[in-house]
């Protein structure tokens, strides 16, 4: 898997290589290496793991997480954090379940749009009121969770006719879950838009050094609001995936995805301090995190110890993937 750096012309790999130390080059591929090692370990532990069936199941499980992590990665690249994604996704599942009967096929774009708007509002609050994104989205998380409880009546909202979202539960060619394919598409789309427009350098500059970006005339505020907006839209899309799978919406349905999503971002090697990283890395990170979740029971780890191992592995993974030369302050 490549970790594209914006606008690096294909003709010049020699220069790029000569300036990076071998160790640093290796850390760049660490998420990928971790993924391969994990698959290999799981296959050794359970030869049945590397079958089409379990891979299909794993990728289907990973899809909403990939989308959530991809959106939030943009916020992290800008130097912020979005803690509201899971709560926003939960709320979106409720809204989608409520609106499907009336809006039908339109419900999906409307929910994504609503989630994007909520994301943008948080971005505006962060930029205009100069509140740290950590605080804004922590508050947002709480507010959105409560709203989800209120509008759902604190219970699961069943979807009777799921035809408008059923397409997400299909399988491409019988093997590839549509949701996983769409998740991949989202990641590719974000990566592509960043790559072919000035956005990549705006986002990186904002994340690495906001004051330098501002003094270079970069539209820092708009970039940040945009990042929150995309993060919100991704939360909305993840919600659509969840609803298509579970035939219902629930006020806490996606809540347990917050930590895995943040873990996916950092395990992928995106610097939590901003600037350095990519959505491709978060894709690799999300796959690692998913494999850990489905894999630990396969290896026979008792569920009580699962969380311990899971937490420890994430910390170790970050220690391995964090490119110390790119991040001067660890906070």
């Amino acid at each position: 898997m490549s970790t594209p750096v914006a606008m690096k012309p294909a003709a010049e790999p020699a220069t790029a290589k000569s300036t990076a130390r071998p160790a640093a080059r290796l850390t760049g591929f660490m998420p990928l290496i971790a993924l391969v090692v994990l698959v290999a370990a799981l296959t050794v532990a359970d030869p049945d793991f590397l079958t089409q069936r379990s891979l299909t199941a794993a990728s289907r499980t990973a899809a909403p997480l990939i989308v959530l992590a991809a959106g939030a990665t943009l916020v992290v690249l800008c130097g912020g954090i979005d803690l509201s994604i899971a709560a926003l996704a939960s709320l979106s599942t409720v809204l989608l379940a409520l609106w499907l009967p009336d809006l039908g096929g339109l419900a999906t774009p409307v929910v994504i749009l609503a989630a994007a708007t909520i994301g943008a509002v948080q971005g505006v609050a962060h930029v205009l009121l100069r509140i740290p994104s950590f605080i804004v989205t922590l508050g947002g998380m709480s507010v959105l969770s409560a709203v989800a409880l209120v509008v759902s009546g604190a219970g699961t909202v069943r979807v009777v006719d799921d035809t408008p979202v059923a397409w997400l539960d299909l399988y491409l060619g019988g093997y590839v879950p549509m949701s996983a394919a769409m998740a991949l598409l989202v990641v590719a789309l974000i990566a592509l838009v960043l790559k072919v427009t000035p956005l990549q350098s705006w986002v990186s500059a904002t994340g690495y050094s906001e004051s330098a970006a501002r003094l270079a005339g970069t539209p820092v505020d708009l970039v940040k609001i945009g990042a929150f907006c995309v993060s919100g839209a991704c939360a909305g899309f993840a919600a659509v995936m969840l609803v298509s799978r579970q035939f219902s919406g629930g006020p806490t349905m996606a809540d347990n995805l917050l930590l895995p999503a943040v873990a996916a971002i950092v395990v992928g090697g995106t610097a939590i301090t901003g600037g350095h990283g990519s959505v491709w890395r978060s894709l690799a990170g999300a796959l690692v995190v998913t494999l850990l979740r489905v894999g630990l029971p396969i290896v026979g780890v008792p569920s009580a110890y699962e969380q311990i191992l899971y937490g420890a592995i994430i910390v170790v993974a970050v220690a391995l993937t964090l490119d110390g030369s790119k991040v001067s302050i660890i906070k």
Binding site: M7, S201, Y208, S209, A212, L215
Partner: peptide, 24 residues
């Protein structure tokens, strides 16, 4: 170092950071 340039970004990206039109 802190305000004039974005250290980890490339010479090209730093040079075109402001006048994006010139490279688009």
């Amino acid at each position: 170092k802190t305000e004039g340039m974005v250290g980890p970004m490339s010479v090209a990206d730093n040079m075109t950071l402001t006048k994006q039109k010139a490279r688009c």
